[in-house]
Amino acid sequence: MSISATEGVGPSLWGLGATTSAKTQQDKDMFLQLLVAQLRYQDPMNPTDSSQFLAQSAQFTSLEKMEEVAAQTAAMVQAQLAFGASSLVGTTVTYATGPAGDDGSPAPTATGVVDGVTFGSQGPVLSIDGTDVALAALHTVTRPGIGPDAGTAAATPADD
């Protein structure tokens, strides 16, 4: 009976989920194939030092953990963008309606109230007075009743 270099090594063994990209999976498979080939074809009179094998295994595990942390960080950034975008509903925003001019003139802008937010594959998209606007196109955000034009009364201390 013969066993191939990657037999028994799959997503369940390494804790990989369906979100692992095909390229990442190919890289891991290549690493394991090289490791098995190194062990299979080593000189029997001068075998590979076990500390080297353990070091390579530890590096591989570290790489996997770093990939997991990167994926979790990306998910957290997406969640933060979603929460931030949804908090803009009801605010007045100014956004770019086109690119900046070739002569250095600023991009044309428009102002409107955010009616809603949709979450697509490219990130949050704001609905502003019926127009879909990417979150990155915003220039300013103003909440009603807050800002330099808002008439806020100053509190005065009570007389005794």
Rank of each mutant, 00 (worst) to 15 (best):
A134D: 02
L135K: 01
G17M: 06
T109H: 02
A71L: 12
P148K: 04
S105R: 03
Q25P: 09
V133S: 01
G10L: 06
S62V: 08
L81W: 09
P157Y: 09
V117H: 00
L16G: 07
T6S: 09
Q38N: 13
Y95L: 03
T73I: 14
T20R: 15
T97S: 02
D29A: 11
D129G: 08
L54V: 13
A136L: 05
R40H: 12
Q25F: 10
Q42G: 08
Y41T: 14
S2V: 11
G101N: 04
P108E: 02
D103P: 03
E68A: 15
F60N: 08
A110H: 01
D49K: 10
A134G: 04
L126T: 00
V93A: 00
D159S: 11
F83I: 12
A74G: 07
I128H: 01
F119S: 03
G147E: 02
D132I: 02
D160S: 12
M45N: 14
L135N: 05
Y95G: 01
E64R: 14
G90P: 04
E7C: 04
K28D: 12
G123D: 00
P106T: 03
A107S: 03
G10E: 08
A55G: 11
D29G: 10
A134H: 05
D149Q: 06
S12R: 13
A70S: 12
S87G: 09
T73F: 14
F60I: 05
L135H: 00
E64Q: 14
V141P: 00
F83W: 10
D149V: 09
D115V: 02
R40T: 09
A137D: 00
N46D: 08
F53H: 13
T140F: 03
S127F: 03
Y95M: 02
V117L: 02
G98L: 02
N46P: 05
T152G: 09
T91I: 05
P108C: 01
G84W: 07
T131C: 06
G104W: 03
V69A: 12
T131F: 07
P124A: 02
E67H: 12
W14H: 14
M45F: 14
A136H: 05
E7F: 05
D43A: 05
F119L: 05
L35G: 11
F31N: 06
A158H: 08
D103S: 06
Y95W: 03
L34R: 09
T152N: 07
T94G: 06
Q78F: 07
G116L: 09
T140Y: 01
G116T: 08
L34T: 08
K28L: 14
L126W: 00
A154M: 11
F83L: 13
G84V: 03
A79C: 10
M66N: 12
V89S: 00
A18P: 10
W14M: 15
Q122E: 14
G104S: 03
T73W: 15
L13W: 09
F119Y: 06
V133W: 01
A137E: 00
A154N: 10
T156Q: 08
A96W: 07
